[in-house]
């Protein structure tokens, strides 16, 4: 993990409000595993806290960061031009563990989709059969072409304008997609639904969580999630999403308290 200055290579809008930014940050890119993230810092001094952004791809010293404009910070990043610098900390978090299963179902919902691209590529490179399920609000999709390089892609939309009408869990159920080993990132209701479906079917769900963060390095205890057992670091039933996570086996998590 390092705290450094990256150089912006390109910034593109790939769907309404969705930004695709390429940053040269060789130290971070070299270390980054799928499922890890970076913290980006605003230039504006009145906006203090880092923004956790997932790593969509990491290649040749570059990080591809795909994020949604949701507020001041992400809007500031979207205004960056090629050659600008950006303060960056990373890679942060545990990332996805090595997976034994030969068949993996990769699930992304909304702005939880980008980090699944790097994971899908790595799984394909390891010779695994990858099935990819992507959930969007509507037909304003992004990154679908890129995912098609790594496995069969199934799309679900909330409004039914493309693919299966419904959630990613609806699509998995309807099409009988395996939930033996599931890797997922997306909004909390989706992750909860997917985890409970996967567990009910005897599978393993490795899910990536998001929470408001302050330090990004495990010191402030801002970004905890509730766990079923006492956590080895905190000695209470809380784990740090930035450090023990963001990827957790759903069986570790206590959704009844969060």
């Amino acid at each position: 993990m390092e705290y450094t200055k990256g150089t912006v290579v390109s910034v593109q809008t790939i769907a309404p409000g969705i930004i695709d930014m390429l940053v040269n940050a060789p130290g971070i890119a070299k270390e980054a595993r799928p499922g890890q993230f970076v913290c980006l810092y605003c230039d504006d001094n009145a906006h203090l806290l880092p923004r956790p952004i997932s790593i969509c791809e990491s290649m040749n010293g570059h990080l591809r960061l795909v994020f949604r404009i949701v507020g001041f910070g992400t809007a500031e990043f979207a205004e960056k031009k090629s050659g600008d610098t950006i303060k960056i900390l990373g890679p942060v978090g545990n990332g996805y563990p090595d997976i034994d299963s030969e068949d993996v179902t990769v699930v992304g919902g909304g702005i939880g989709i980008p980090p699944m691209l790097y994971l899908s590529r790595k799984l394909k490179e390891q010779g695994k059969k990858v099935t990819i399920v992507l959930g969007f609000r509507d037909k304003g999709t992004f990154l679908v072409d890129a995912f098609e390089n790594y496995g069969k892609v199934v799309i679900a939309t909330d409004d039914g304008s493309l693919g299966v009408h419904g959630t990613v869990v609806d699509a998995i159920r309807e099409l009988g997609i395996s939930v033996h080993t599931v890797c997922a990132c997306g909004p909390m209701p989706m992750l909860k639904g997917l985890a409970s479906y996967t567990e009910a079917n005897g599978g393993t769900a490795l899910i990536s969580l998001e929470e408001r963060m302050a330090c990004g390095i495990g010191a402030c205890l801002g970004c905890i999630t509730k766990t079923r057992e006492v956590d080895g670091h905190s000695h209470v039933k809380n784990a740090r999403i930035c450090t023990e996570g963001p990827v957790f086996d759903s069986k570790v998590l206590d959704f009844t308290r969060s």
């Binding site: 801002g222 999630t225 209470v236």
Partner: peptide
């Protein structure tokens, strides 16, 4: 050991933050 409060626990405000 203390378990602390539920999340969200932190929020940025202009020129500062709440925790």
């Amino acid at each position: 050991p203390w378990e602390g409060n539920p999340t969200p626990r932190v929020m940025e405000t202009t020129g500062g933050m709440l925790n």
